[in-house]
Design a protein around this nucleic acid. Structure first.
Length: 504
DNA sequence: CTAATAATAT
DNA sequence: AATATTATTA
């Protein structure tokens, strides 16, 4: 695929994307419709949540995305979100004038893939197609994994790993030939799907890493047919992964510290830090020409996918917690994330693949790369962060954006969160043009939406984002490092697989 | 073959 | 419950 084609492809895509817009306020709805039209989407509107639900039920594949107000008289907007998101597996974007984190959190918890604040600007709407791309990309991956074994349906001798409650979206062959009855020599192996792992994480999250024991985790996860031993095993692996990451992170910090004095010398030759390994095996855009993702961690994929965040464009501060370094706030970051009696603590978006919404080319590539081999992102980023945090007003939660368009989102003892309300930042260059390099560069500093920010802290998926002011003893890792470890495994290998039981 | 990963043993 | 070992898989 040539670059031009690639760009054209992504450029063309959003045109005609079918959007269902829901808002009880007619004025808002009109405006929304107009704006969506202007983005060249195909728009269907309704002022009733109930109608929206019916519409989407009747035409299962008639919409690509739903964008809906949260407060509506006839139905709880969150209910709608949940129903649509789960039943139809459509990306749902929430719309609200409430910037209260609680609302946002709620939206995210219920599976919103984004949360836009009213009044919505067209720039934001221009970008919503990315949610669709993201979602479908994930789906495709899933189906490849499941249908991949075209030769001799290897399923026949395998028992489905039906340990998770069925995801409404993957109810295909429901033929349960419970062949449990027979001798049952070997225990089926558990395949840890992304979903299960997310639950696992949420559970660990909830009780805190130090109290995380298999039994408790198992209870919290509430997955059928999963045994305590299964969890124990996974926990073991998880801890190992954590330790490994921590150690490498420490090395990073040392290196960073050492380097910071010599920043001008971009060399680093011989240190093995900034050379690139194998190029990202996808297409052949010009991004591969220069530096591939800089890896600061070994390129082996051990433990990949163990950790929830994906993007690493911005620094993460690691926080030492009894031998393990945890990211940002200690594991259970937001007090909002509770596991309630309905087990809704594991929002539906757990089934989405996490991925930073970035400019199209990057969506497709899945990686960002630095613009030059000697480029050292984290140092610059840290510097900028410091600048930002120094300029952030200290009291109000929702302040005016600073010059860079960032708001302070929250502030706790030693950290400050930043975000921008609703913009995807540079990714608003949704229609990629010839400015990729610049774009790329901006992407590194690209701000998050509120929803993205929250999600990042929810341990369920997504972006690690809360940005702390850098302090001694904290560290930041830079783009393309943890990322590599995190991103590669879970998604491809374990999305929805069959659990094999050999029949001789 | 090896590495990864889950099961099982301690 | 934590860790070490083994078995199975890709």
């Amino acid at each position: 695929m040539t670059v031009e084609q690639g760009i054209e492809a992504v450029d063309q895509f959003p045109v005609g994307m079918r959007v269902l817009a829901v808002d009880d306020d007619h004025t808002c709805l009109r405006i929304l419709e107009t704006l969506l039209h202007r983005c060249q989407y195909h728009v269907t509107t309704t002022d009733k949540a109930q109608t929206a639900l019916e519409l989407s039920r009747e035409n299962k594949n008639k919409f690509d995305l739903v964008i809906s107000d949260v407060d509506m008289p006839d139905m709880d907007g969150f209910k709608l979100l949940e129903l649509v998101g789960l039943e139809m597996d459509l990306p749902v974007i929430k719309l609200s004038s409430h910037s209260d984190p609680k609302y946002v959190m709620k939206g995210v918890k219920h599976g919103a893939c984004d949360y836009l604040l009213k009044p919505v600007r067209i720039e934001e709407l221009k970008n919503i197609w990315q949610h669709v791309v993201r979602k479908s990309k994930f789906k495709k991956m899933k189906s490849v994994v499941t249908n991949g074994e075209s030769e001799g349906n290897s399923d026949q001798n395998g028992v489905r790993a039906n340990r998770k409650r069925k995801d409404p979206l993957e109810e295909e062959d429901e033929e349960e030939e419970e062949q449990q009855e027979r001798g049952n020599e070997k225990k089926p192996r558990v395949i840890w799907t992304r979903e299960m792992h997310n639950k696992f994480l949420a559970a660990v999250d909830h009780v805190g890493i130090k109290n995380a024991v298999p039994k408790k985790i198992l209870e919290l996860m509430d997955v059928d047919n999963l045994t305590r031993d299964n969890v124990a095993s996974h926990l073991q692996k998880f801890r190992l992964a954590l330790k490994k990451i921590t150690n490498e992170a420490k090395q990073q910090v040392n290196m960073a510290a050492a380097n910071s004095h010599f920043m001008q010398m971009s060399s680093l030759k011989g240190l093995g830090g900034f050379h690139h390994h194998s190029p990202i095996p996808l297409g052949s855009s010009q991004f591969h020409g220069g530096a591939a993702t800089t890896r600061h961690y070994p390129s082996n994929r051990t433990f990949a996918g163990m950790f929830p965040h994906v993007s690493s464009s911005l620094p993460r501060n690691l926080h030492n917690d009894g031998g393990y370094m945890l990211q940002g706030t200690p594991f259970p970051p937001l007090e909002n994330l509770h596991i309630n009696s309905n087990n809704k603590a594991f929002p539906s978006f757990a089934s989405q693949q996490s991925s930073l919404l970035v400019a199209p080319s990057l969506v497709l590539e899945g990686h960002q790369q630095s613009s030059s081999p000697s480029y050292s992102p984290h140092l610059e980023i840290n510097k900028r962060l410091e600048d930002w945090s120094n300029n952030i007003p200290q009291s109000n939660v929702h302040s005016e954006p600073d010059a860079l368009g960032w708001n302070m989102f929250g502030n706790s003892t030693n950290q400050t969160y930043f975000c921008r309300d609703t913009d995807f930042g540079s990714s608003s260059a949704a229609h990629a043009d010839s400015l990729q390099m610049k774009q790329q560069h901006e992407n590194i500093f690209s701000p998050m939406t509120v929803a993205q920010l929250l999600r990042s802290s929810s341990a369920n998926e997504g972006l690690f984002m809360g940005q702390q002011k850098l302090e001694d003893g904290f560290m930041a890792s830079d783009a393309g490092s943890l990322d590599d470890i995190v991103n590669s495994m879970m998604t491809q290998e374990q999305s929805s697989r069959v659990l094999g039981r050999r029949l001789a």
